[in-house]
């Protein structure tokens, strides 16, 4: 009450009562506390990154000296990275990362938006049941369904129709889509890709917060629902699209579980990276992963792996950070 009055009359701090002084002190103490927390957590976040960078730059000679970890006596900019790039099959890996994962991320971003718009804007029978199913897809992890998915993908079928054709005529039309892009693209196209449930949920929250009047008006003017969606709803959803895109790209980039199950070669970068600790000994490096030399190469591998995502992040972080404020989740 006191502070409110004071700020209204704009009197200087001269007429401070002990109570307001205590409040001021509390405020200062709080901002000190805040900066300490921020620095502490910031340190925890930066430390592993710096560790990765310095470790990856250590030269072979400097491994002998276990005391100087942070500033290696001799920097070796290239050799660890060269081995890491080779072990990661960087060029081929990057291409298949783009081909399989990134394409399916883009498909997922679009298909999830369509499904979410249906959920957020329209009333239809059994909507609660459908929402329940959507919630189930968030809860049940891919690990549970990966085995049947692999089996089904080896003989792609649509509700048993092609299997029936096979039984009746002996012609097997079921294609094996394992090791092709379709294994990744088909689920993404049907909004059943990597963590699609969460993306749909984020979209729904946002679409619900958009004022419906504009869309109603377009509707009254005779624009169809698809037109309204593309022309009116999507252009004002840049914020949520950005958030979803960042999440989807990152999750796909880091996914190795699905791709290591679906593919038998031509792996994306993420799979190569998981295989690196086992692959280095075959390239003539120490067998024990804890050996500093292996560690240095592993860290170089991690860094070149996150580099593309880091570059994207640096470009979009401004908008991404703002967008989170504006997406708004009410649960």
């Amino acid at each position: 009450m006191l502070t409110a009055k004071k700020s209204l009359s704009l009197t200087p701090a001269k007429s401070e009562t002990p109570k307001t002084r205590a409040r001021h002190l509390g405020k200062h103490a709080y901002s000190v506390f805040r900066i300490i927390i921020l620095l502490a957590i910031g340190f925890v976040i930066l430390y592993p990154l710096l560790y990765m960078i310095t470790t990856s730059l250590r030269s072979r000679a400097s491994f002998m000296n276990s005391v100087r970890v942070w500033l290696p006596e001799k920097l070796d900019m290239a050799s660890n990275y060269k081995v890491a790039l080779e072990a990661l099959h960087y060029k081929e890996g990057l291409i298949s990362s783009l081909k399989y994962e990134m394409v399916s991320a883009v498909l997922e971003i679009c298909s999830c938006a369509i499904a979410a718009y249906g959920f957020a804007r329209f009333k239809f029978p059994f909507k609660r049941l459908f929402m329940g199913m959507l919630f189930l897809t968030i809860l049940i992890p891919d690990t549970m369904i990966i085995i049947p998915r692999v089996v089904n993908n080896s003989q792609l079928d649509f509700l048993g129709i092609l299997a029936l054709v096979n039984k009746l005529t002996g012609i097997d039309l079921r294609p094996n889509v394992l090791d092709t892009g379709w294994t990744f693209w088909l689920p993404s196209l049907l909004a059943a890709g990597l963590r699609s449930g969460i993306l749909i949920f984020i979209y729904i929250q946002f679409f619900k917060s958009l004022p419906a009047e504009l869309e109603e008006a377009a509707w009254m003017d005779g624009a169809g629902p698809i037109r309204t969606f593309i022309r009116i709803a999507l252009p004002s959803s840049g914020v949520v699209i950005l958030t979803v895109t960042v999440f989807s790209l990152i999750w796909h980039w880091n996914d190795y579980f699905l791709s290591s199950m679906y593919l038998t070669g031509d792996y994306p970068l993420a799979v190569w990276l998981t295989m690196m600790p086992k692959q280095l000994p075959t390239m003539g490096h120490p067998l024990v992963p804890s050996h500093p030399e292996t560690m240095a190469i592993l860290m170089a591998g991690c860094l070149v792996f996150i580099l593309p995502m880091l570059i994207i992040y640096i470009f979009v972080q401004r908008w991404f950070i703002e967008s989170i404020d504006r997406v708004g989740i009410t649960g």
């Binding site: 298909s111 999830c112 369509i114 499904a115 718009y117 249906g118 959920f119 804007r121 329209f122 239809f124 459908f130 199913m133 959507l134 189930l136 897809t137 049940i140 369904i145 998915r149 649509f158 509700l159 088909l186 689920p187 196209l189 049907l190 909004a191 059943a192 699609s196 749909i200 629902p225 969606f229």
Partner: peptide, 13 residues
């Protein structure tokens, strides 16, 4: 709007 998602839910889930 939710038809593709529902199909995906049945087939892949």
């Amino acid at each position: 709007f939710i038809a593709p998602w529902f199909l995906g839910f049945i087939l892949f889930f």
